[in-house]
């Protein structure tokens, strides 16, 4: 995937400025197999950790924690309050 090539094993971090003034870190860890190509079927899913909302609470979500519990359906969508 163009624009996503990063050194093998590199960890990409960004800071999301929370509205409550706390910095929250999102970490994207790309495994060697996926470094050059991003997400591909048959290859390990790139792990990430991100801020999340869950049943009334603010928390974080880490893909690898979900993977350790079974199958995972990872769903991206354009935005909250969209119609479809």
């Amino acid at each position: 995937m163009a624009g996503c090539a990063r050194p093998t094993g590199a960890s990409v971090s960004l800071h999301v400025e929370g509205l409550d003034g706390h910095d929250e870190e999102t970490t994207v860890t790309e495994k060697e197999a996926t470094t050059m190509s991003g997400a591909r079927v048959g290859r390990p899913a790139p792990d990430f950790e991100a801020p999340a909302y869950y049943k009334g609470e603010f928390t974080t979500v880490k893909l690898s924690e979900s993977v350790g519990k079974g199958w995972t359906l990872l769903c991206f969508y354009p935005g909250d309050f969209t119609f479809v």
């Binding site: 960004l14 999102t26 997400a39 893909l63 995972t72 359906l73 990872l74 991206f76 354009p78």
Partner: peptide, 23 residues
Amino acid sequence: HVGKVYGVYDEDAGVEMRGRFLI
């Protein structure tokens, strides 16, 4: 950043496209 790694981030619109990944 996560969307970019998964190839679903639309830089022009600044949103994620609909993407479903079964892991």
